[in-house]
Design a protein around this nucleic acid. Sequence first.
DNA 1: ATGGTAGAAAATCTA
Length: 263
Amino acid sequence: MRIATWNVNSIRSRVDRVTDWLVRSDVDVLAMQETKAREDQFPHERFRELGYEVAHHGLSQWNGVAIVSRVGIEDVQIGFDGMPGWGDPVAAEARAIGAVCGGVRIWSLYIPNGRTLEDPHLLYKLDWLGALADAGRGWLAAEPSAPIALLGDWNIAPFDEDVWSVPFYEGRTHTSPRERAAFQAVVDAGFADVVRPHCPGPGVYTYWDYVQLRFQKGRGMRIDFALCSPALAARVTGAAIDREERKGKGASDHAPVVFEIAD
DNA sequence: ATGGTAGAAAATCTA
């Protein structure tokens, strides 16, 4: 089974590109982030006509997460227990959706950006990841052999080799010790990065800012990850980051990340 | 060259 995660940065502006890629890449399950669409705006039919079932959660023009699958979608969950909210009044955002696809519990996650190191949004980001680590630890405590995949845009570069320039990110989000510790806490809860062993750095990225020809200059970040529970990680046979999909007009600023598991 | 890119939606906000 082939599973992928991709921050599509607006599904409505990119549905042709996403569906073309999905078919061409022979992917069975795709977790998307930043659909930037309410439920009624999501192009469900474009996926259904290709044989994919859709589970989407979107509340406004911001955030939005989805899972599309051609191996079934069961037990859809919006958000996870303990997931923090944001805003005034504080409310849950559309940043997490889960479903069981082909026997695997898939989560499509859009971790808060953090904005700046002084912004309250950074504390939201850290809280959100802490709650995710707690939830994940709980799932594995209840069922140690559960096949679970935490897929998404984590908005954190865990290691120095994951950014094009360490000095550039000093004093900015995505590389700070607190963010890296929050990411590591999810790993320590029992979820391993299954892509890195197949796609070792340095210089291997999943995101390139649109500005200043960052992609053309090779100036990216690795911030999109597939973290798998022990039972699922043991089944992974390969992985790839499709940087070709970042090329050309109309590309998302993120590349799709794909991994394959033995049935 | 006094900005930088893209997408949402409706004047800025988010990334």
